[in-house]
Design a protein around this nucleic acid. Sequence first.
DNA 1: GTACATGCAAAAAATTTGCAGAGAT
DNA 2: ATCTCTGCAAATTTTTTGCATGTAC
Lengths: 145, 145
Amino acid sequence: MPLSPPAERYAHLREACVRRGLRLTPQREVLIRVLSEAMGHPTADELVRQVREVLPTVSHATVYRNLQELVREGLLRTLDMAGAAVQFEINPDEHHHFVCRKCGQVWDVYLSAVDVRVNRRRTAIDGFRIDRREVQLHGVCAACQ
Amino acid sequence: MPLSPPAERYAHLREACVRRGLRLTPQREVLIRVLSEAMGHPTADELVRQVREVLPTVSHATVYRNLQELVREGLLRTLDMAGAAVQFEINPDEHHHFVCRKCGQVWDVYLSAVDVRVNRRRTAIDGFRIDRREVQLHGVCAACQ
DNA sequence: GTACATGCAAAAAATTTGCAGAGAT
DNA sequence: ATCTCTGCAAATTTTTTGCATGTAC
């Protein structure tokens, strides 16, 4: 069972919205349905398109605002490390990163040992070539505690 | 020695450019000097600003094009996982990611064991709270081999 | 001399904001 | 009735592209 079924995820998101006092508008309801049925890692724009298959008049702003809301409430996560702007890796040494959840800053982290074992039963990566393993530590930096 | 000295990194970048037939224009030379002196994880825009401290008339396009060039040549790396667009994490289970270097697609990966040890001597994260460890596997997917 | 690089300006892509009006509770 | 949410449109932010000119080799 790699992923809980859509109906369950939908119920969870819906309930979490209600619990936090977010109104269940048609737009928001379709968005959380789309999210709970989604596979993979959709972009905001892809989600707009999918919501529009049900509610063609929904605006960009509404979907973006709702996604922000869900992220702020901890019901959804973002996949990128930093903000929208691309950042460049200066340090040529092999290293990893710590990302502060509050200020978004990134620190270089050196690891003396990295040991991971892929669960082949749950992970379909047959024939993939793995060149590099990078670890991101997420948390709160000293200044933001 | 957490990082090789700027002069050495500059020489390396410069030589690598020449070897690949990239011309050493003033703009490109200042950019690689800025890069070799840079700390942390600057955005493209921050690099534009720093190059402009030396060459105030340099254009945005030039810096962006050169950064692309350096990434394409493997002399520089980008810090974000996917493209510019923010992607959302649907899967609420604890899992990790595989990113294909060629097509940019992202797969969910389940790991049965994750064991990392921070090298405290080289890593200044005193007083940081670590909440989550995320592993990214980088390589080439089966379809792109 | 020639191919490559630059500057400019405009376009594109992604996201955010202000505001008036609609709708949920 | 209130306060939130939405749609629209415009503004921002970040990055890319076309094209004429300039320049490193």
